[in-house]
């Protein structure tokens, strides 16, 4: 496989995951805003812009006017926001076109049809009544593509590059969401263990579609520690950091086997693995969650960079 093609597959799935995660965040934000008073709703919309990493470009356009429709249109389709969902999805499709002869036609059609659908829905600003549908369609696009991939793609290196992209991106975005939300909810350590605003914590879980799984496992009990443990260390939950890294490890191992060589990415993965296995929830709080997450995100990025280098993505 060409290095450029591997790069295209890797990024196609990173962008797909990114679009999906942004949609989840928006979904959770909308729900939150609907259940709160006016001021808290604004606060929620503001935090959403913070979480999207586009504070500066939002301020430049709206000068702090955090109304719901400003925020969701900004996140979904605003050209001033380089990371808007529509252009992220367009990146998915552009990469898919580039690697078109290594993906099955079902995967391509799932992407192309989803893109045609989103493009037509996002041509004009989205009214509140349609927001739920758009956001649902973005998530469904991810489900469709992953399903088509599982059912039709050859299990060769292309498949593993695609999955590696998925899990690198998912780990990155879950860690960032957790960091930002947690920081907003618990400005200092002294808050750990204090009585919590359950609806806000529910929102953290909802942002990564983990609310139902968490309630099932914990019989409805909500506490900060439990949630962090669930999202960081629980290997059963497919969006936890531990799950992402375990999946990534498997794909990198398959790639090494297919290429008859261990690369720098496999070595970094092993180190990251050891750290995750040895870490307990107590260690995380002792170190500070923020510090832990920053280190995690950095390790994750180094692994991504090593994959690109090992498999000659660009040179």
């Amino acid at each position: 496989m060409l290095g450029r093609t591997a790069n295209g597959l890797f990024w196609m799935f990173r962008y797909l995951e990114r679009a999906e995660n942004t949609a989840r965040l928006l979904d959770a934000g909308l729900r939150m805003a609907l259940t709160r008073d006016h001021t808290s709703a604004r606060e929620e919309w503001r935090s959403l812009i913070g979480a999207s990493g586009q504070q500066a470009s939002f301020d430049a356009k709206y000068d702090g006017d955090f109304t719901g429709s400003n925020v969701w249109n900004f996140i979904l389709r605003d050209k001033e926001n380089s990371a808007n969902i529509l252009s992220t999805f367009e990146q998915v499709r552009t990469n898919a076109r580039m690697v078109r002869n290594t993906i099955s036609s079902e995967v391509w059609e799932a992407i192309n049809e989803s893109w045609m659908n989103l493009e037509s829905q996002l041509k004009r600003p989205v009214a509140q009544g349609n927001l739920g549908k758009v956001v649902g369609d973005v998530r469904r696009a991810g489900t469709l593509v992953h399903g088509a991939m599982a059912g039709t793609m050859l299990r060769d290196s292309g498949f593993h590059f695609a999955r590696a992209g998925t899990f690198v991106e998912r780990a990155d975005s879950v860690a960032r969401i957790l960091d930002i939300k947690y920081y907003l909810l618990l400005p200092s350590l002294t808050y750990v263990g204090s009585s919590l605003d359950t609806s806000q914590w529910d929102n953290v879980l909802r942002s990564v579609s983990g609310d139902r799984a968490y309630r099932w496992l914990n019989a409805g009990e909500i506490d900060a520690r439990g949630i962090v443990e669930f999202l960081v260390l629980d290997e059963r939950f497919p969006r936890s950091l531990a799950f992402c890294h375990s999946a990534l490890r498997d794909d990198l191992a398959s790639l090494a086997k297919l290429h008859h060589a261990q690369g720098a990415c496999n070595e970094l993965m092993r180190e990251a693995d050891m750290i995750m296995t040895d870490t307990t929830i107590d260690d995380i709080f002792e170190k500070g969650l923020h510090e832990f997450l920053i280190e995690f995100v950095n390790r994750n990025s180094s692994i991504a960079a090593a994959i690109a280098e090992d498999y000659r993505f660009t040179a």
């Binding site: 290095g3 450029r4 591997a6």
Partner: peptide, 23 residues
């Protein structure tokens, strides 16, 4: 067949070679 662009190809040892994940 592989679908290549100019940037995937380079002349090495008197042959036109494509940059794959294997080299």
């Amino acid at each position: 067949a592989e679908l290549v662009e100019g940037s995937d190809l380079r002349v090495i040892d008197g042959r036109v070679q494509m940059r794959t994940t294997h080299g």
